[in-house]
Nucleic acid binder design. Sequence first.
DNA 1: ATGGTCGTCTTACGA
Length: 267
Amino acid sequence: MRLMTWNINSLRLRLPLLARLAQAQRPDIICLQETKVPDGLFPAQPLHDLGYVHQHYCGMKGYNGVAILSRHPMTRLEDTPDWCKKSDTRHIGALLETRDGPVTVHDFYVPAGGDIPDPALNEKFAHKLAFLDEVTAWFRNTPPERTILVGDLNIAPLEHDVWSHKQLANTVSHTPPEIERLNHWQRTGFMDAMRLEVPPEEKLYTWWSYRNRDWKASNRGRRLDHIWITPDLRPCLERIEILRDVRDWESPSDHVPVTIDLDLIIS
DNA sequence: ATGGTCGTCTTACGA
């Protein structure tokens, strides 16, 4: 089973890139973030034509929005909270039936948090911290099993998840209060699948700002996108790939897709 | 320290 996660930064604008990716990678499941499309305008038909006939999505006008596209039937999780009571379409979950029982997929778009890393001065940062606290409490209360959690978590937790640990220590996405909360969330029952495959001493990025003339030459990246799995799925973990080349495709997202291959038999 | 560039609810704002 191959699952892809991608912050697509406008699904409608980047449908051609998604088509190219789907044909090249043939993922069974695609989890998208920042679709930026209300449900009434979701491009269901073109995605259906690509083979993703099972679609769960939750979007709004202009901002945020998440979607799970699948070649196989999935059952949407209906009992997920309205995080921070904002109804701002940052989470969707669904179940996939496999030979050895259902696997849960969670797709998250965590608030970016604005520029100033102080919840007293910046409402967006306060929202980010509150969001992390809420999801952590929820997973603590509902310990995950046979679960894959993916998405743009907007936090680069490790030293080598950013181009300069020193220079970004006070930059939102790499500050201690966010990292501490991300770690608490992960400890509700997940393993960092990307770092199971790539040692923590090795630089690893999934996002490069648009604000660099030459993203590849400056290589000032961050690992903002994540794939977590519960320990019961660890024996199934085969491969993770960060599709870095996609950052150089025409009109790219600032995030690149990441795929995970798991030895699971879909039923 | 600043500014750089995208996308959309476009000359403002979020990322």
